[in-house]
């Protein structure tokens, strides 16, 4: 059995992103066989009312003949979805307090999720952004697309600063079809701004998952003495005392996390905090939960 809970620092030692993703996902799936809650079956799932834009191939014409209404027939195992990964590659994602960089962790996460989705024959796409959209890969379930996505992830190095508003306006153009939208970011912006920016994706029928990648040093920073901190995105400097880092800062970041989580739930989105010192399987599990809900 492959290792299921590989430490992110171990993953960092695997230079090949494809191998990293397979290592994570294969180990993860192997563990899933013991779980009755998850799996891939061919059983009938549900009927869903047709809405304009749905593929007419999935319309159950027998039901239409009997009821004169259009319904889509969905099966669990055969149900495919579109997974679009929005990867934040701003400068702040390059932060690390000693372990894995957030951007690396995010790339492992994106690659693993992409591989998992590809494994289920879901269409997978990628949009990387900072203050503008940098890369865009149309969701597709073809083999070559996944490799292309991995190459794109490989190239995704942090640059510039984050501006949620600008790239998310563009997302509206790319995300014509509904599916799962995974936003992987450190969300260093006011919670209401983040939610206000991301919410339209949900309103278009997407299942939105906010993957909040944070370094443990960002959640609970420890300063031995006063330090001048330099903002990695703006370059601003600020001298910070150890007392504030241990007190006021932690309260504020905790409030920020709470605001994001509650706001996301309120907007029908899923929120997940991924710490860079924890294995990736929890994030994969969260994806499957969301996917299971999306038939």
């Amino acid at each position: 059995m492959l290792q299921r809970f590989l430490d992110p620092r171990v993953l960092a030692g695997i230079a090949n992103l494809q191998l990293t993703a397979k290592t994570v996902v294969d180990g993860f799936i192997a563990g899933l066989h013991r779980s009755p809650d998850y799996g891939f079956s061919q059983e009938f799932a549900e009927y869903r009312a047709y809405v304009p834009g749905d593929d007419l191939r999935f319309v159950d014409w027998n039901v239409y003949a009997r009821t004169d209404r259009l319904y889509l027939k969905r099966y669990r195992g055969e149900t495919n979805t579109r997974l679009t990964i929005l990867l934040d590659r701003s400068n702040s994602m390059a932060f690390t307090s000693g372990g894995v960089k957030k951007i690396d962790y995010a790339r492992y996460l994106a690659a693993s999720l992409a591989y998992l989705a590809h494994h289920q024959r879901d269409a997978v796409g990628l949009i990387s952004f900072d203050e503008a959209v940098r890369d865009f890969i149309e969701p597709s379930s073809r083999q070559g697309n996944w490799v292309k996505l991995l190459h794109c992830l490989d190239r995704s190095e942090p640059a510039s600063r984050t501006d949620f508003a600008q790239p998310f306006v563009h997302f509206q153009q790319f995300l014509h079809k509904r599916g799962i939208v995974l936003v992987i970011s450190d969300f260093f912006a006011p919670a209401d701004v983040v939610l206000r920016t991301v919410a339209p994706l949900r309103q278009r029928g997407n299942d939105v998952v906010l993957m909040h990648v944070l370094d443990p040093g960002e959640i609970a920073p420890h300063l031995a003495a006063s330090r001048i901190l330099i903002d990695m995105e703006t370059g601003d400097e600020l001298e910070v005392s150890p007392e504030y880092a241990a007190g006021g800062y932690r309260e504020k970041i905790a409030a920020h996390l709470r605001a994001l989580e509650s706001g996301a739930q309120g907007a029908g989105m899923s929120y997940f905090l991924a710490r860079t010192d924890q294995p990736l399987d929890a994030a994969l599990r969260r994806y499957l939960v969301v996917r299971e809900g999306r038939i």
Binding site: F95, P221, S226, I230, D231, M232
Partner: peptide, 12 residues
């Protein structure tokens, strides 16, 4: 003080 890069100063 020893300068240190930090992801964001928005909470200071």
């Amino acid at each position: 003080s020893q300068p240190q890069h930090f992801s964001s100063l928005m909470f200071f």
